[in-house]
C-alpha cells in the first residue's frame, strides 16, 4: 500500500510555516562595518551603497545619520523606530560638501 504523494503537501506546508515562524531578522554584525569611512575621500554614494537608507537626512542630504547597534561581533545598522533608542548604541553623523564628499563625521555614543 502506498501513500499518495500529494498527502504530504499539507504536512510540508505546515513545516515550512513553522520554520518561517522561527526565523528571526537579526542584523548581521560586522567589526569592519564603518572602516571604509574616511573624511575627504568617501562619497555619499559609497555611504548609501554600504550602509543603505539613512535614519535621518538634513539640509538636502548634506548631512546623513545612521543608528548603529553593537554587539560582541561588531557594528550593525539598527532600523529606526520613533524615539526608541533601546538597541541603538551610536548615532553616526556624516557631513558632506557640495560635491558629495565626506567632510566630517562622528560616531556619537547615545547610550
Amino acid at each position: 500500500m502506498t501513500t499518495p504523494r500529494h498527502s504530504y503537501f499539507p504536512a510540508a506546508g505546515l513545516a515550512l510555516l513553522l520554520l518561517y515562524a522561527c526565523a528571526t531578522n537579526a542584523p548581521v554584525a560586522d567589526p569592519q562595518l564603518l572602516d571604509f569611512i574616511q573624511d575627504g575621500t568617501t562619497t555619499r554614494d559609497e555611504i548609501l551603497l554600504n550602509l543603505g537608507q539613512p535614519s535621518a537626512v538634513f539640509q538636502d542630504e548634506a548631512i546623513l545619520t545612521y543608528r548603529i547597534g553593537e554587539d560582541k561581533r561588531g557594528y550593525f545598522i539598527e532600523v529606526p523606530s520613533a524615539s526608541d533608542w533601546q538597541f541603538v548604541r551610536y548615532s553616526l553623523v556624516l557631513v558632506f560638501d557640495a560635491k558629495g564628499t565626506l567632510q566630517r563625521h562622528n560616531l556619537v555614543s547615545v547610550r
Partner: peptide, 25 residues
C-alpha cells in the same frame, strides 16, 4: 551650525518640518 550640533549630540528625536528646530528627549 546645525552640523556642529548633530556631530556633538547625534540624531535628534524630533525634527520640525522646516528642519530648523531639533528636539532631544
Amino acid at each position: 551650525t546645525l552640523a556642529d550640533v548633530l556631530l556633538q549630540l547625534g540624531e535628534p528625536d524630533v525634527v520640525s518640518e522646516d528642519g530648523r528646530r531639533l528636539t532631544y528627549q
